[in-house]
Write a protein that binds this DNA or RNA. Structure first.
Lengths: 226, 226
DNA sequence: ACTCCGCTGATTGCTGACCGTCAATCATTT
DNA sequence: AAATGATTGACGGTCAGCAATCAGCGGAGT
Protein backbone atom coordinates (compact mmCIF):
# COMPACT_ATOMS: atom_id res chain seq x y z
CA UNK A 1 0.00 0.00 0.00
CA UNK A 2 1.27 3.39 -0.96
CA UNK A 3 2.02 5.75 1.85
CA UNK A 4 -0.85 8.13 2.29
CA UNK A 5 -0.22 11.69 3.35
CA UNK A 6 -2.62 12.88 5.96
CA UNK A 7 -5.36 14.99 4.46
CA UNK A 8 -5.88 16.58 7.81
CA UNK A 9 -2.55 18.35 7.68
CA UNK A 10 -3.78 20.21 4.61
CA UNK A 11 -6.78 21.53 6.41
CA UNK A 12 -5.76 24.62 8.24
CA UNK A 13 -8.11 26.62 10.38
CA UNK A 14 -9.31 29.75 8.69
CA UNK A 15 -7.69 32.17 11.12
CA UNK A 16 -4.32 30.46 10.63
CA UNK A 17 -4.70 30.77 6.88
CA UNK A 18 -5.50 34.44 7.29
CA UNK A 19 -2.42 34.86 9.47
CA UNK A 20 -0.37 33.07 6.81
CA UNK A 21 -1.58 35.50 4.18
CA UNK A 22 -0.80 38.59 6.21
CA UNK A 23 2.54 37.19 7.38
CA UNK A 24 3.51 36.53 3.79
CA UNK A 25 2.85 40.13 2.88
CA UNK A 26 4.84 41.41 5.82
CA UNK A 27 7.84 39.17 5.21
CA UNK A 28 7.84 40.02 1.51
CA UNK A 29 8.10 43.65 2.48
CA UNK A 30 4.86 44.55 0.70
CA UNK A 31 3.53 45.85 3.98
CA UNK A 32 6.26 48.20 5.26
CA UNK A 33 7.23 48.61 8.90
CA UNK A 34 4.76 50.77 10.78
CA UNK A 35 2.05 50.28 8.18
CA UNK A 36 -1.43 50.47 9.58
CA UNK A 37 -3.67 47.43 9.38
CA UNK A 38 -7.43 47.93 9.32
CA UNK A 39 -9.55 45.01 10.45
CA UNK A 40 -12.40 45.80 8.08
CA UNK A 41 -10.12 46.28 5.11
CA UNK A 42 -8.28 43.02 5.76
CA UNK A 43 -11.53 41.15 6.25
CA UNK A 44 -12.69 42.33 2.84
CA UNK A 45 -9.44 41.47 1.09
CA UNK A 46 -9.15 38.02 2.67
CA UNK A 47 -12.89 37.41 2.45
CA UNK A 48 -13.24 36.38 6.06
CA UNK A 49 -15.09 37.95 8.93
CA UNK A 50 -13.64 40.62 11.18
CA UNK A 51 -13.43 38.23 14.10
CA UNK A 52 -11.26 35.87 12.12
CA UNK A 53 -8.96 38.73 11.16
CA UNK A 54 -8.70 39.70 14.83
CA UNK A 55 -7.65 36.18 15.70
CA UNK A 56 -5.05 36.20 12.94
CA UNK A 57 -3.65 39.55 14.05
CA UNK A 58 -3.41 38.32 17.64
CA UNK A 59 -1.36 35.38 16.41
CA UNK A 60 0.96 37.66 14.45
CA UNK A 61 1.30 39.96 17.45
CA UNK A 62 2.48 37.00 19.46
CA UNK A 63 5.02 36.25 16.72
CA UNK A 64 6.29 39.82 16.98
CA UNK A 65 5.44 40.90 13.44
CA UNK A 66 2.50 43.08 14.41
CA UNK A 67 1.75 45.42 17.27
CA UNK A 68 -1.56 46.22 18.89
CA UNK A 69 -2.43 49.68 20.14
CA UNK A 70 -5.50 49.10 22.23
CA UNK A 71 -8.76 50.64 21.02
CA UNK A 72 -6.95 52.37 18.21
CA UNK A 73 -5.00 50.42 15.68
CA UNK A 74 -2.97 47.47 14.51
CA UNK A 75 0.32 48.11 12.79
CA UNK A 76 3.27 46.25 11.38
CA UNK A 77 6.09 46.28 13.93
CA UNK A 78 8.81 48.90 13.65
CA UNK A 79 12.39 47.70 13.78
CA UNK A 80 15.17 49.46 15.61
CA UNK A 81 18.86 48.62 16.08
CA UNK A 82 17.88 47.63 19.60
CA UNK A 83 15.50 45.05 18.14
CA UNK A 84 18.29 43.70 15.97
CA UNK A 85 20.50 43.35 19.02
CA UNK A 86 17.75 41.52 20.89
CA UNK A 87 17.13 39.19 18.00
CA UNK A 88 20.75 38.22 17.50
CA UNK A 89 21.59 37.75 21.17
CA UNK A 90 18.51 35.63 21.68
CA UNK A 91 19.16 33.74 18.49
CA UNK A 92 22.70 32.99 19.63
CA UNK A 93 21.46 31.58 22.92
CA UNK A 94 18.82 29.42 21.23
CA UNK A 95 21.09 28.18 18.46
CA UNK A 96 23.82 27.49 20.98
CA UNK A 97 21.49 25.14 22.77
CA UNK A 98 20.23 23.75 19.49
CA UNK A 99 23.72 23.01 18.17
CA UNK A 100 24.70 21.37 21.44
CA UNK A 101 21.69 19.08 21.41
CA UNK A 102 21.97 18.39 17.70
CA UNK A 103 25.57 17.30 18.14
CA UNK A 104 24.44 15.02 20.94
CA UNK A 105 22.02 13.06 18.77
CA UNK A 106 23.00 13.53 15.15
CA UNK A 107 22.68 10.27 13.27
CA UNK A 108 24.11 9.33 9.85
CA UNK A 109 20.88 10.36 8.13
CA UNK A 110 21.05 13.79 9.72
CA UNK A 111 24.70 14.12 8.78
CA UNK A 112 23.89 13.36 5.17
CA UNK A 113 21.11 15.92 5.06
CA UNK A 114 23.27 18.61 6.62
CA UNK A 115 26.15 17.92 4.27
CA UNK A 116 23.83 18.17 1.27
CA UNK A 117 22.58 21.55 2.44
CA UNK A 118 26.15 22.79 2.92
CA UNK A 119 26.89 21.76 -0.65
CA UNK A 120 23.83 23.68 -1.81
CA UNK A 121 25.02 26.70 0.10
CA UNK A 122 28.52 26.50 -1.30
CA UNK A 123 27.36 26.26 -4.90
CA UNK A 124 24.87 29.08 -4.45
CA UNK A 125 27.65 31.32 -3.16
CA UNK A 126 29.90 30.23 -6.02
CA UNK A 127 27.20 31.04 -8.58
CA UNK A 128 26.46 34.34 -6.87
CA UNK A 129 22.78 33.46 -6.44
CA UNK A 130 22.52 35.68 -3.40
CA UNK A 131 18.78 35.41 -2.81
CA UNK A 132 19.14 31.65 -2.65
CA UNK A 133 22.04 31.97 -0.23
CA UNK A 134 19.95 33.53 2.50
CA UNK A 135 17.18 30.98 1.99
CA UNK A 136 19.59 28.08 2.26
CA UNK A 137 21.27 29.74 5.23
CA UNK A 138 17.95 29.90 7.05
CA UNK A 139 17.13 26.33 6.12
CA UNK A 140 20.45 25.09 7.39
CA UNK A 141 19.98 26.62 10.81
CA UNK A 142 16.45 25.29 10.91
CA UNK A 143 17.69 21.79 10.15
CA UNK A 144 20.14 21.92 13.04
CA UNK A 145 17.38 22.93 15.42
CA UNK A 146 15.17 20.14 14.12
CA UNK A 147 17.83 17.58 14.89
CA UNK A 148 17.83 18.81 18.48
CA UNK A 149 14.33 17.31 18.84
CA UNK A 150 13.18 20.06 21.15
CA UNK A 151 9.67 21.20 20.39
CA UNK A 152 9.64 24.44 22.36
CA UNK A 153 13.09 25.39 21.14
CA UNK A 154 12.06 24.84 17.54
CA UNK A 155 8.98 26.99 18.00
CA UNK A 156 10.83 29.88 19.62
CA UNK A 157 13.63 29.66 17.11
CA UNK A 158 11.11 29.80 14.30
CA UNK A 159 9.57 32.98 15.64
CA UNK A 160 12.95 34.61 16.11
CA UNK A 161 14.08 33.68 12.63
CA UNK A 162 10.90 35.14 11.19
CA UNK A 163 11.69 38.41 12.87
CA UNK A 164 15.28 38.22 11.69
CA UNK A 165 14.04 37.78 8.15
CA UNK A 166 11.65 40.68 8.60
CA UNK A 167 14.44 42.86 9.91
CA UNK A 168 16.75 41.90 7.06
CA UNK A 169 14.13 42.79 4.47
CA UNK A 170 13.45 46.17 6.02
CA UNK A 171 17.02 47.15 6.75
CA UNK A 172 18.35 45.98 3.39
CA UNK A 173 21.03 44.01 5.13
CA UNK A 174 22.95 41.39 3.22
CA UNK A 175 25.97 39.43 4.41
CA UNK A 176 29.16 40.84 3.01
CA UNK A 177 31.87 38.25 3.31
CA UNK A 178 30.37 35.19 1.66
CA UNK A 179 33.44 33.02 1.81
CA UNK A 180 33.70 33.51 5.57
CA UNK A 181 30.01 32.67 5.78
CA UNK A 182 30.52 29.36 4.03
CA UNK A 183 33.53 28.55 6.19
CA UNK A 184 31.66 29.25 9.41
CA UNK A 185 28.74 27.08 8.39
CA UNK A 186 30.99 24.26 7.27
CA UNK A 187 32.83 24.34 10.59
CA UNK A 188 29.59 24.33 12.55
CA UNK A 189 28.12 21.45 10.60
CA UNK A 190 31.38 19.57 10.95
CA UNK A 191 31.24 19.91 14.72
CA UNK A 192 27.63 18.68 14.78
CA UNK A 193 28.44 15.67 12.63
CA UNK A 194 31.50 14.89 14.74
CA UNK A 195 29.18 15.08 17.74
CA UNK A 196 31.39 17.60 19.46
CA UNK A 197 28.72 19.35 21.52
CA UNK A 198 30.95 21.93 23.16
CA UNK A 199 32.51 23.01 19.90
CA UNK A 200 29.16 23.10 18.12
CA UNK A 201 27.71 25.36 20.77
CA UNK A 202 30.70 27.70 20.65
CA UNK A 203 30.65 27.90 16.87
CA UNK A 204 26.91 28.57 16.77
CA UNK A 205 27.34 31.45 19.18
CA UNK A 206 30.37 32.96 17.49
CA UNK A 207 28.64 32.67 14.13
CA UNK A 208 25.82 34.85 15.42
CA UNK A 209 28.24 37.29 16.96
CA UNK A 210 30.02 37.80 13.67
CA UNK A 211 26.66 38.43 12.02
CA UNK A 212 25.57 40.95 14.61
CA UNK A 213 28.82 42.88 14.33
CA UNK A 214 28.46 42.96 10.55
CA UNK A 215 24.91 44.14 10.98
CA UNK A 216 25.77 46.93 13.39
CA UNK A 217 28.49 48.06 11.00
CA UNK A 218 25.87 48.12 8.26
CA UNK A 219 23.35 50.20 10.21
CA UNK A 220 26.16 52.54 11.24
CA UNK A 221 27.01 52.96 7.59
CA UNK A 222 23.41 53.67 6.65
CA UNK A 223 23.21 56.22 9.43
CA UNK A 224 26.28 58.17 8.37
CA UNK A 225 25.21 58.01 4.72
CA UNK A 226 21.92 59.76 5.44
CA UNK B 1 -5.26 67.36 46.87
CA UNK B 2 -4.81 63.69 47.37
CA UNK B 3 -2.81 61.89 44.75
CA UNK B 4 -5.06 60.14 42.27
CA UNK B 5 -3.97 56.79 40.95
CA UNK B 6 -4.48 56.21 37.28
CA UNK B 7 -7.63 54.30 36.55
CA UNK B 8 -6.23 53.27 33.25
CA UNK B 9 -3.66 50.93 34.71
CA UNK B 10 -6.55 48.93 36.13
CA UNK B 11 -8.26 48.63 32.81
CA UNK B 12 -7.26 45.46 31.13
CA UNK B 13 -8.92 44.22 28.01
CA UNK B 14 -11.71 41.82 28.79
CA UNK B 15 -10.18 38.84 27.02
CA UNK B 16 -6.93 39.34 28.98
CA UNK B 17 -8.89 39.41 32.21
CA UNK B 18 -10.64 36.21 31.23
CA UNK B 19 -7.29 34.63 30.39
CA UNK B 20 -5.96 35.77 33.77
CA UNK B 21 -8.86 34.08 35.53
CA UNK B 22 -8.43 30.79 33.74
CA UNK B 23 -4.63 30.90 34.07
CA UNK B 24 -4.98 31.46 37.80
CA UNK B 25 -7.10 28.34 38.12
CA UNK B 26 -4.65 26.28 36.10
CA UNK B 27 -1.57 27.45 37.99
CA UNK B 28 -3.32 26.91 41.33
CA UNK B 29 -3.92 23.33 40.29
CA UNK B 30 -7.70 23.70 40.57
CA UNK B 31 -7.98 22.69 36.95
CA UNK B 32 -5.93 19.48 36.67
CA UNK B 33 -3.81 18.53 33.68
CA UNK B 34 -5.91 17.20 30.84
CA UNK B 35 -9.12 18.76 32.17
CA UNK B 36 -11.59 19.66 29.50
CA UNK B 37 -12.61 23.27 29.04
CA UNK B 38 -16.00 24.05 27.55
CA UNK B 39 -16.41 27.42 25.88
CA UNK B 40 -20.04 27.85 26.87
CA UNK B 41 -19.44 26.79 30.44
CA UNK B 42 -16.52 29.19 30.85
CA UNK B 43 -18.48 32.02 29.29
CA UNK B 44 -21.21 31.49 31.86
CA UNK B 45 -18.83 31.29 34.80
CA UNK B 46 -16.80 34.33 33.75
CA UNK B 47 -19.87 36.19 32.56
CA UNK B 48 -18.39 37.09 29.21
CA UNK B 49 -19.35 36.07 25.70
CA UNK B 50 -18.14 32.95 23.97
CA UNK B 51 -16.00 34.99 21.60
CA UNK B 52 -14.10 36.53 24.46
CA UNK B 53 -13.54 33.11 26.00
CA UNK B 54 -12.18 31.86 22.69
CA UNK B 55 -9.77 34.75 22.56
CA UNK B 56 -8.63 34.01 26.11
CA UNK B 57 -8.15 30.32 25.38
CA UNK B 58 -6.16 31.14 22.26
CA UNK B 59 -3.81 33.25 24.37
CA UNK B 60 -3.37 30.49 26.92
CA UNK B 61 -2.71 28.03 24.11
CA UNK B 62 0.08 30.29 22.87
CA UNK B 63 1.46 30.36 26.41
CA UNK B 64 1.48 26.57 26.46
CA UNK B 65 -0.95 26.08 29.34
CA UNK B 66 -3.84 24.93 27.19
CA UNK B 67 -4.12 22.77 24.10
CA UNK B 68 -6.57 23.06 21.26
CA UNK B 69 -7.95 20.00 19.55
CA UNK B 70 -9.58 21.42 16.47
CA UNK B 71 -13.36 21.07 16.21
CA UNK B 72 -13.37 18.91 19.30
CA UNK B 73 -12.12 20.34 22.56
CA UNK B 74 -9.93 22.61 24.63
CA UNK B 75 -8.00 21.04 27.45
CA UNK B 76 -5.43 21.90 30.06
CA UNK B 77 -2.01 20.77 28.81
CA UNK B 78 -0.63 17.44 29.94
CA UNK B 79 2.90 17.38 31.30
CA UNK B 80 5.44 14.69 30.60
CA UNK B 81 9.04 14.22 31.73
CA UNK B 82 9.98 15.23 28.21
CA UNK B 83 8.24 18.55 28.76
CA UNK B 84 10.17 19.05 31.98
CA UNK B 85 13.40 18.40 30.15
CA UNK B 86 12.47 20.90 27.45
CA UNK B 87 11.54 23.51 30.00
CA UNK B 88 14.71 23.24 32.01
CA UNK B 89 17.11 23.11 29.07
CA UNK B 90 15.43 26.10 27.49
CA UNK B 91 15.31 27.90 30.80
CA UNK B 92 19.02 27.30 31.29
CA UNK B 93 19.81 28.80 27.90
CA UNK B 94 17.62 31.85 28.51
CA UNK B 95 18.82 32.46 32.05
CA UNK B 96 22.40 31.97 30.96
CA UNK B 97 21.97 34.84 28.54
CA UNK B 98 20.03 36.82 31.13
CA UNK B 99 22.69 36.43 33.80
CA UNK B 100 25.44 37.38 31.35
CA UNK B 101 23.65 40.56 30.31
CA UNK B 102 22.60 41.38 33.86
CA UNK B 103 26.19 41.14 35.01
CA UNK B 104 27.16 43.46 32.18
CA UNK B 105 24.90 46.28 33.29
CA UNK B 106 24.07 45.78 36.95
CA UNK B 107 24.12 49.10 38.78
CA UNK B 108 24.23 49.75 42.53
CA UNK B 109 20.43 50.01 42.68
CA UNK B 110 20.08 46.62 41.05
CA UNK B 111 22.66 45.15 43.40
CA UNK B 112 20.75 46.39 46.40
CA UNK B 113 17.48 44.94 45.16
CA UNK B 114 19.04 41.57 44.43
CA UNK B 115 20.74 41.42 47.81
CA UNK B 116 17.45 42.20 49.55
CA UNK B 117 15.73 39.36 47.71
CA UNK B 118 18.51 36.96 48.65
CA UNK B 119 18.04 37.94 52.29
CA UNK B 120 14.32 37.25 51.91
CA UNK B 121 15.09 33.86 50.44
CA UNK B 122 17.55 32.98 53.18
CA UNK B 123 15.16 33.85 55.97
CA UNK B 124 12.28 32.03 54.32
CA UNK B 125 14.40 28.89 54.15
CA UNK B 126 15.50 29.37 57.74
CA UNK B 127 11.88 29.70 58.89
CA UNK B 128 10.86 26.73 56.78
CA UNK B 129 8.22 28.77 54.94
CA UNK B 130 8.51 26.56 51.91
CA UNK B 131 5.66 28.01 49.86
CA UNK B 132 7.32 31.42 50.15
CA UNK B 133 10.66 29.96 49.12
CA UNK B 134 9.48 28.99 45.66
CA UNK B 135 7.79 32.36 45.19
CA UNK B 136 10.93 34.25 46.15
CA UNK B 137 13.00 31.92 44.01
CA UNK B 138 10.89 32.75 40.97
CA UNK B 139 11.03 36.44 41.76
CA UNK B 140 14.79 36.40 42.07
CA UNK B 141 15.27 34.86 38.65
CA UNK B 142 12.78 37.30 37.21
CA UNK B 143 14.71 40.21 38.68
CA UNK B 144 17.93 39.04 37.06
CA UNK B 145 16.23 38.84 33.69
CA UNK B 146 14.77 42.31 34.17
CA UNK B 147 18.22 43.75 34.76
CA UNK B 148 19.27 42.32 31.40
CA UNK B 149 16.98 44.90 29.74
CA UNK B 150 16.03 42.52 26.98
CA UNK B 151 12.37 42.72 26.13
CA UNK B 152 12.05 39.54 24.09
CA UNK B 153 14.13 37.58 26.55
CA UNK B 154 11.96 38.72 29.44
CA UNK B 155 8.82 37.74 27.59
CA UNK B 156 10.04 34.28 26.65
CA UNK B 157 11.44 33.70 30.09
CA UNK B 158 8.11 34.64 31.61
CA UNK B 159 6.26 32.10 29.51
CA UNK B 160 8.75 29.38 30.33
CA UNK B 161 8.60 30.12 34.03
CA UNK B 162 4.82 29.92 33.93
CA UNK B 163 5.08 26.46 32.47
CA UNK B 164 7.71 25.51 35.03
CA UNK B 165 5.36 26.58 37.79
CA UNK B 166 2.56 24.62 36.17
CA UNK B 167 4.72 21.54 35.96
CA UNK B 168 5.85 21.89 39.56
CA UNK B 169 2.28 22.09 40.81
CA UNK B 170 1.18 19.06 38.83
CA UNK B 171 4.18 16.87 39.53
CA UNK B 172 4.32 17.74 43.22
CA UNK B 173 7.95 18.58 42.89
CA UNK B 174 9.68 20.55 45.63
CA UNK B 175 13.38 21.31 45.95
CA UNK B 176 15.03 19.00 48.41
CA UNK B 177 18.30 20.49 49.46
CA UNK B 178 17.37 23.98 50.57
CA UNK B 179 20.79 24.97 51.87
CA UNK B 180 22.39 24.14 48.53
CA UNK B 181 19.62 26.16 46.87
CA UNK B 182 20.46 29.22 48.94
CA UNK B 183 24.17 28.80 48.27
CA UNK B 184 23.66 28.54 44.54
CA UNK B 185 21.53 31.63 44.42
CA UNK B 186 23.93 33.60 46.59
CA UNK B 187 26.82 32.66 44.33
CA UNK B 188 24.88 33.61 41.21
CA UNK B 189 23.82 36.97 42.59
CA UNK B 190 27.37 37.59 43.76
CA UNK B 191 28.68 37.05 40.25
CA UNK B 192 26.08 39.41 38.81
CA UNK B 193 26.90 42.12 41.33
CA UNK B 194 30.61 41.63 40.74
CA UNK B 195 29.83 42.03 37.03
CA UNK B 196 31.55 38.79 36.19
CA UNK B 197 29.55 37.89 33.09
CA UNK B 198 31.23 34.59 32.33
CA UNK B 199 30.85 33.30 35.85
CA UNK B 200 27.25 34.50 36.07
CA UNK B 201 26.34 32.65 32.88
CA UNK B 202 28.03 29.47 34.05
CA UNK B 203 26.35 29.58 37.46
CA UNK B 204 22.93 30.23 35.96
CA UNK B 205 23.30 27.20 33.71
CA UNK B 206 24.66 24.88 36.36
CA UNK B 207 21.91 25.99 38.74
CA UNK B 208 19.33 24.81 36.24
CA UNK B 209 21.17 21.59 35.62
CA UNK B 210 21.16 20.74 39.31
CA UNK B 211 17.43 21.40 39.38
CA UNK B 212 16.70 19.23 36.39
CA UNK B 213 18.70 16.35 37.82
CA UNK B 214 16.83 16.66 41.10
CA UNK B 215 13.59 16.72 39.15
CA UNK B 216 14.35 13.65 37.11
CA UNK B 217 15.31 11.84 40.29
CA UNK B 218 11.95 12.87 41.71
CA UNK B 219 9.90 11.63 38.75
CA UNK B 220 11.91 8.40 38.78
CA UNK B 221 11.02 7.99 42.42
CA UNK B 222 7.33 8.59 41.76
CA UNK B 223 7.41 6.06 38.97
CA UNK B 224 8.93 3.28 41.05
CA UNK B 225 6.59 4.06 43.93
CA UNK B 226 3.51 3.46 41.81
C1' DA C 1 -17.91 -12.01 18.82
C1' DC C 2 -16.05 -8.80 15.56
C1' DT C 3 -15.88 -5.18 12.22
C1' DC C 4 -17.81 -1.82 9.57
C1' DC C 5 -21.25 1.63 8.72
C1' DG C 6 -24.14 5.48 9.36
C1' DC C 7 -26.74 8.20 12.54
C1' DT C 8 -27.12 11.59 16.18
C1' DG C 9 -25.86 14.76 19.64
C1' DA C 10 -22.51 17.80 21.23
C1' DT C 11 -18.98 21.17 20.52
C1' DT C 12 -16.19 24.03 18.08
C1' DG C 13 -15.47 27.28 13.79
C1' DC C 14 -17.08 31.18 11.61
C1' DT C 15 -20.24 34.85 10.20
C1' DG C 16 -22.89 39.21 10.14
C1' DA C 17 -25.10 42.67 12.49
C1' DC C 18 -25.09 45.44 16.29
C1' DC C 19 -23.76 48.76 20.03
C1' DG C 20 -20.59 50.82 23.33
C1' DT C 21 -16.01 52.68 24.02
C1' DC C 22 -12.02 55.00 22.92
C1' DA C 23 -8.66 58.19 20.46
C1' DA C 24 -7.92 61.62 17.24
C1' DT C 25 -9.39 65.43 14.91
C1' DC C 26 -11.97 69.43 14.18
C1' DA C 27 -15.05 73.15 15.48
C1' DT C 28 -16.53 76.19 19.03
C1' DT C 29 -16.19 79.04 22.83
C1' DT C 30 -13.98 82.01 25.97
C1' DA D 1 -4.48 80.91 21.79
C1' DA D 2 -6.03 77.59 25.01
C1' DA D 3 -9.63 74.95 26.82
C1' DT D 4 -13.91 72.76 25.89
C1' DG D 5 -17.17 70.19 23.36
C1' DA D 6 -18.78 67.50 19.14
C1' DT D 7 -17.87 64.48 15.32
C1' DT D 8 -15.70 60.65 13.25
C1' DG D 9 -13.34 56.41 12.46
C1' DA D 10 -11.87 52.26 14.38
C1' DC D 11 -11.59 48.82 17.84
C1' DG D 12 -13.74 45.81 21.84
C1' DG D 13 -17.28 42.93 22.84
C1' DT D 14 -21.98 40.59 22.44
C1' DC D 15 -25.41 37.90 20.32
C1' DA D 16 -27.97 34.55 17.45
C1' DG D 17 -27.30 31.35 14.29
C1' DC D 18 -25.48 28.19 10.93
C1' DA D 19 -21.73 25.13 9.19
C1' DA D 20 -18.15 21.82 10.00
C1' DT D 21 -16.43 18.28 12.55
C1' DC D 22 -15.89 14.63 15.86
C1' DA D 23 -17.00 11.05 19.55
C1' DG D 24 -20.00 7.69 20.70
C1' DC D 25 -23.62 4.58 20.01
C1' DG D 26 -26.26 1.13 18.00
C1' DG D 27 -27.43 -1.81 14.06
C1' DA D 28 -26.21 -4.61 9.92
C1' DG D 29 -23.41 -7.82 8.04
C1' DT D 30 -19.76 -11.27 8.42
Amino acid sequence: MAKLTSLKSEKRLLDRQAADGIREHILEGILPAGARLLETQLSEQLEVSRGTVRSALAQLAREGLVQQVAFTRWQVSETSPRDAWELYTLRAALEGLGARLAAANAGPVDAKRLKATVVELTSAVKDQRFEDVTDIDFRLHQQIVEIAHHHRLAEQHGYIMQQVRFHMVHSGFLPKDYSALVDEHAALIGAVIDRDADLAERLAKSHNESEVSALSAHTEQVKTAS
